[in-house]
Design a protein around this nucleic acid. Structure first.
Length: 302
DNA sequence: AATCGACTCAACCGCACTATC
DNA sequence: AGATAGTGCGGTTGAGTCGAT
């Protein structure tokens, strides 16, 4: 491969113009970290905590940019980082979460204590992508293609919004809970039992694809939530906001429902509503899926 | 022993988001 | 409201390693 690769490298170098990286601008070190640099960084953070990353290198006496320091710390030096190969459980968790969250490595990592988004990304790209990408891509593309909200009734759209908020809330909890594979729990719990129709027929499917089937069922019933893009970037919205949004959505839906005479005609929203209402609630491990309106109505919004 | 190619993983880059002024 | 700084994230790169030939 030698020559071709070199030529490609050169071409890429030529293409790379414009904005210089911060390290280049400031004449700072790049590339692999030395043991000494690691020690300086660890010592500094141990003594001072995490100050602003931009100032850290100067204060610590490192010839690195702040971004580089942050990356080194979060991906490698942090004391709670788990090294070594991924366990089968971790692998399953990654597969399941990736099937619903897509390439949201940070969100996936939040469910795997001690693993970084970079670790998981690398693991996926090197071990799992070949095995699963085709299957998952098919699923997500069919998800996004399958529904077109433009052609839904306003009532349905409101229910869709409501469901979006609910799913986001669930994802938010998902991302904050660290130890359990919620999708597996979901499938193995009563919720799994309540999954519609073709569970028997899907006997040969993996839990992951079965779960996806359920999500697809909701999707095809009413809405166009693109699960390959489940949430906006950095973090999930706050739960309180979610509840306010949900409350608004529900109010709107109720108002619309009382004013509308086509409520009988929308099978998809009926199905949707049924799924929502049939969702098992209770004091179990799936509590996070509990209807937030309960809290709202009892004035215990938190 | 030398070479090649596949693979791994740390690190970089650039974009997007949020907070602050 | 707009500008700027700080940070998080996902995609990509490239050096190092290892097995096959």
């Amino acid at each position: 491969m030698g020559k071709k690769r070199d030529e490609m490298k050169e071409e890429k170098k030529k293409k790379k113009k414009g904005k210089k990286a911060c390290c280049e601008r400031e004449g700072l070190r790049k590339g692999a970290w030395s043991a000494e640099e690691d020690k300086i960084l660890v010592d500094f953070i141990t003594q001072n905590g995490q100050t602003t990353w931009r100032n850290l290198p100067r204060l610590a006496g490192l010839l690195r940019c702040g971004k580089s320091c942050r990356l080194r710390w979060t991906n490698y030096l942090r004391p709670d980082i788990k090294r070594g190969p991924f366990s089968p459980d971790e692998e399953n968790t990654i597969i399941h979460l990736h099937s619903t969250l897509g390439n949201k490595w940070a969100a996936i990592a939040s469910n795997l204590p001690g693993r970084t988004d970079n670790d998981i990304k690398n693991f996926w790209n090197s071990h799992l992508r070949k095995r699963f990408s085709g299957e998952v891509l098919d699923q997500t593309s069919s998800l996004s293609k399958s529904v077109d909200t433009k052609h839904e009734s306003p009532q349905t759209r409101l229910l869709v919004q409501s469901e979006n908020v609910r799913v986001e809330t669930a994802e938010s909890h998902l991302s904050s809970k660290s130890e359990d594979d919620y999708l597996l729990c979901l499938w193995n719990s009563k919720v799994g039992d309540s999954f519609p129709s073709d569970r028997e027929g899907a006997g040969a499917q993996s839990p992951a694809s079965q779960t996806s089937s359920y999500i697809r069922t909701i999707e095809s019933g009413s809405r166009a939530r693109n699960l390959s893009e489940p949430c906006k970037k950095t973090s999930f919205p706050g739960e309180t906001d979610q509840k306010v949004k949900l409350l608004n959505c529900k109010k709107e839906a109720e108002e619309f429902g009382s004013n509308s005479d086509d409520s009988k005609s929308d099978d998809s929203s009926d199905t949707m509503l049924k799924i929502l209402l049939d969702f098992p609630m209770g004091s179990n491990e799936m509590e996070f899926l509990q209807d937030p309106f309960d809290d709202v109505s009892t004035g215990t919004l938190h």
